[in-house]
Design a protein around this nucleic acid. Structure first.
Lengths: 124, 124
DNA sequence: ATAACACCTGGAGTTAGCTCAAAGTCAAGG
DNA sequence: CCTTGACTTTGAGCTAACTCCAGGTGTTAT
C-alpha cells in the first residue's frame, strides 16, 4: 500500500504519516528500490493503532516509547503492559470527567429550553 | 476573592486566569481602586464553567463566542442554546470514541497478561 | 520527449493554549 | 525608611503536533 492510499484510508495527511515515521511511530515502512514507501500489513496495523490512540489523546511521546519497546522484542512485554495500564487509567478518568461535563451541558440546555418556552408562553 | 485564591481553588495558574480575562472569557472581573482584581460570585461561577468546558476540550474560540453572547443579554438565549447543543453532540461522539479506545486498551492489556502468564508457566 | 503527476527530503512555519519575564505599583512588617 | 510580597501590565517565549514549502526524482500519458 502506498502512502496516498494509507492517507485516504485512515484520514491522516501525507505529511502526518511521514512525520509519524520520522519520529519513530512507524519506523518499519519498507521502500521500493526507488525510495517509495510501501506500507506492509504490520505498518497498516500500526497506523490504525496510532490513529486510535492519538484520537484518545495519548501523547506522542508515550506512543514513541511504546513503539520503541515493541521494536526491542519480547523482553519488553511487561514494560509495555505497564504503559498501557497507566494510559488506560488516565483514559478512564478522562471519560468520567467528560461524562460529567456532558451532564452539565445537558442541564444547561434544558434550562435554556425552559427559558425559551416560558418566554413563548408569555409567562413572566 | 483575589486572583491567588481563585487560582488555588480551581487549579488554574495566575497567568491563565489573566489570560482568560484578556481574551474575553471572564470579562467581568471588577477591580479595587488600585487595580487589583476582585472576583465576584458570578466571576467564580464563570471560572468554574470555563474550567469544566476546557477540561472537556471545548475550544477557547467557541467559549469566547458563548461568553460574548451572554454579555449581550437575553436576546441571545437561542443562539447560546445552539452552541451548547452542538458542543454537546461533539462531546457525546468523543466519549463514544474514547470508550472504544478504552476497550481496545483493555483487550491489549489482557493479551499481554496472557503472554506473561504463558511465559511464566513455561508453555511454549 | 515532454508534461503531468506522485512521490521524496530537509527544514521552516503554523496554531492553540498557555507560560514566563521585565518593570512597575502598592500595603504591611521590622 | 526600606524591604518583602502580592499584585499589575505588555509583550515575548514555549510546547505539542502537525503542516507547508522548495527543490528534486522517477513513472506515466500524450
Amino acid at each position: 500500500m502506498k502512502i496516498a492510499e494509507v492517507s485516504e484510508k485512515y484520514g491522516l495527511s501525507l505529511d502526518t504519516l511521514r512525520y509519524y515515521e520520522r519520529i519513530g511511530l512507524i519506523p518499519t515502512v519498507t521502500r521500493t528500490p526507488n525510495g517509495i514507501r510501501e506500507y506492509g500489513e504490520m505498518d497498516i496495523k500500526r497506523v490504525e493503532f496510532i490513529k486510535c490512540m492519538r484520537g484518545a489523546g495519548l501523547p506522542i511521546e508515550v506512543l514513541i516509547d511504546y513503539v520503541a519497546l515493541v521494536q526491542v522484542g519480547d523482553s519488553t512485554v511487561e514494560a509495555r503492559k505497564e504503559i498501557l495500564k497507566e494510559q488506560r487509567e488516565l483514559l478512564a478518568a478522562k471519560i468520567t470527567d467528560l461524562q460529567k461535563t456532558l451532564e452539565l451541558l445537558d442541564y444547561m440546555i434544558s434550562v435554556y429550553e425552559n427559558k425559551i418556552l416560558t418566554k413563548e408562553q408569555g409567562i413572566i
